[in-house]
């Protein structure tokens, strides 16, 4: 376990980037009513629980085209 803590400085930027993607996607979800498919709750679940890929799927093919 101590070793894991040793790697923490490496892990933190990774976690931050994942969070960044998630936050960008969530902000977009809450700012829009309509999506190309799916509902708001579905997208929230996908974005929050599927790491990295969830926000990407939302931002690339789920997001409405404005």
């Amino acid at each position: 376990m101590e070793k894991l803590i040793e790697y923490l400085p490496f892990l933190i930027p990774i976690v931050l980037l994942e969070l960044l993607l998630m936050v960008i996607a969530l902000v977009h979800i809450f700012k829009h009513e309509n999506y190309r498919f799916g509902t708001r709750w579905l997208w929230i679940i996908i974005v929050v629980f599927i790491q990295i890929v969830g926000p990407i799927i939302y931002l690339t093919i789920g997001r409405s085209e404005d």
Partner: peptide, 8 residues
């Protein structure tokens, strides 16, 4: 997206 994913 590209930048974040590839950095990760």
């Amino acid at each position: 997206i590209l930048a974040a994913v590839f950095f990760i």
